[in-house]
C-alpha cells in the first residue's frame, strides 16, 4: 500500500467529520453568530431528539432493513400520550410506557409482514407510515393536543447547568447503543445479519428474532424521541413526524451506517446527527424558507447515499485488484 492509498483511506474514514467541518465553516462565514454559545446549545438540543431516533433506526439499518415509518411512530407516542392523558387522567409515565410498547408492537408487525410474505421492508414501511399517520389523526381528532401535566416538562425543557436534559438522555443512550453494538453478542449478531443473512442463519443465529429485536429497538427509540419532543413543545401533534424519517436515515447514512447493512459505528452516527442539526439551525439562520430547506435536506440524503455507494464500490475495486 503506498502513501496516496493511505491518505485516501484516512479521508474515507473521516468523511462525516469532514462534511461537518465544511458546514460549520460555511455557516460561520455566512453568519458569525453561528458559533455563539446560545446557538450551539440550540443545535445540540435540536440534535438530541432526532439523535435518539437515529440511534434506533441505525440498529435496524445495520441489519440491512430500510424503514421509513419511524417518523410516524415518533408522532404516534406524543399523540397517544396526550390523548389518553386528556381522556383518562391515568399516571402520565404509565401512559408513556404503554405508548412505547404500542410503537414497538406496530414496528414488529411491519417486520412480521416483511418476513412472513418475503416483501421489501422499504415498501411496507412506506405503507405503514401512511397508515400510522392516519391513526395519529384519528387519535388526536386532527388537532394539536394540549393539557399535559407540568411534571413532564423537565424531559424536554430542563437543563443541568447549560446542558439540556434531552442531550444528556441522548448521550447516555448513545453510550448504551455503542456498548450494545461493540461489546455484546447481540451487537455482533446484528452486524452478522446485516453482513449476510444466510451465512448468519447457517452460523446458528436466529435471524428473524434479531430482526424483531432491532425493529422494536428502532420503534422504542423513535417513540422516545417523540416523547422528548412532546415534552419540549408541551403538546401532542399528529404532524410532529414531519421529515423525521428521512432526517434520521440521512443522519445515519452520513454517519457511515451503510444502507446495505452490516456497517455502522456510533461515533460516526453522532457526527451524522450533528450534521443534520447544524443544517437545520444554520439554514434557519440564513432565513431560508422551510420549503427550500426541504429541497436542501432531500439533496443531503441523495449525497449521503451516493457517498455510501462510492466508498463501497471503491472498496470492491481495490479488492478485485488483489
Amino acid at each position: 500500500m503506498n502513501k496516496s492509498d493511505k491518505i485516501r483511506q484516512t479521508i474515507t474514514k473521516f468523511i462525516p467529520q469532514i462534511i461537518l467541518l465544511i458546514l460549520v465553516i460555511f455557516f460561520t462565514i455566512m453568519n458569525s453568530r453561528f458559533l455563539s454559545q446560545k446557538n450551539l446549545i440550540s443545535v445540540v438540543r435540536q440534535v438530541s431528539t432526532t439523535g435518539i431516533a437515529c440511534l434506533g433506526i441505525s440498529c435496524l439499518l445495520i441489519t440491512g432493513e430500510l424503514d421509513f415509518s419511524m417518523g410516524a411512530l415518533y408522532a404516534f407516542t406524543g399523540v397517544f400520550t396526550a390523548s389518553v392523558y386528556a381522556k383518562t387522567g391515568l399516571p402520565i409515565y404509565l401512559i408513556m410506557l404503554v405508548s412505547l410498547i404500542c410503537a414497538a408492537l406496530i414496528s414488529c408487525f411491519t417486520c412480521w409482514i416483511t418476513i412472513q410474505f418475503n416483501v421489501p421492508r422499504l415498501i411496507i414501511s412506506i405503507a405503514m407510515q401512511t397508515a400510522i399517520n392516519g391513526l395519529n389523526v384519528i387519535i388526536s381528532g386532527n388537532k394539536t393536543l394540549y393539557g399535559l401535566p407540568d411534571n413532564i416538562k423537565w424531559i424536554g425543557q430542563g437543563y443541568i447547568g447549560v446542558v439540556p436534559i434531552s442531550t444528556i438522555i441522548f448521550i447516555a443512550l448513545a453510550f448504551v447503543v455503542a456498548f450494545m453494538l461493540n461489546k455484546t453478542y447481540l451487537g455482533r449478531y446484528i452486524m452478522a445479519v446485516g453482513g449476510n443473512n444466510e451465512v448468519a442463519r447457517l452460523s446458528g443465529i436466529n435471524t428473524k428474532k434479531i430482526k424483531y429485536i432491532t425493529s422494536a429497538i428502532a420503534a422504542v427509540m423513535a417513540g422516545l424521541a417523540g416523547l422528548v419532543a412532546m415534552s419540549r413543545t408541551f403538546c401532542g401533534s399528529p404532524t410532529a413526524g414531519g421529515s423525521i424519517s428521512s432526517d434520521i436515515i440521512s443522519a445515519a447514512v452520513l454517519g457511515g451506517v451503510s444502507i446495505m447493512g452490516g456497517q455502522g459505528k456510533t461515533s460516526g452516527l453522532v457526527t451524522g446527527v450533528i450534521i443534520i442539526g447544524a443544517l437545520n439551525v444554520g439554514l434557519n439562520m440564513m432565513n431560508m424558507s422551510s420549503n427550500a430547506q426541504d429541497i436542501f435536506k432531500g439533496s443531503m440524503l441523495v449525497v449521503a447515499i451516493v457517498v455510501d455507494s462510492l466508498t463501497k464500490s471503491r472498496r470492491a475495486k481495490s479488492k478485485r485488484h488483489e
Binding site: 453478542y185 449478531y189 452478522a192 453482513g195
Partner: peptide
C-alpha cells in the same frame, strides 16, 4: 456466498457461532 462473512474480519467469522 453461504460460508463466510467476506466483509468481516477473520476473528469475527471464527467466534460468531460460539459467542454465547
Amino acid at each position: 456466498r453461504t460460508g463466510l462473512f467476506l466483509n468481516f474480519p477473520v476473528g469475527f467469522n471464527i467466534s460468531l457461532p460460539s459467542l454465547k
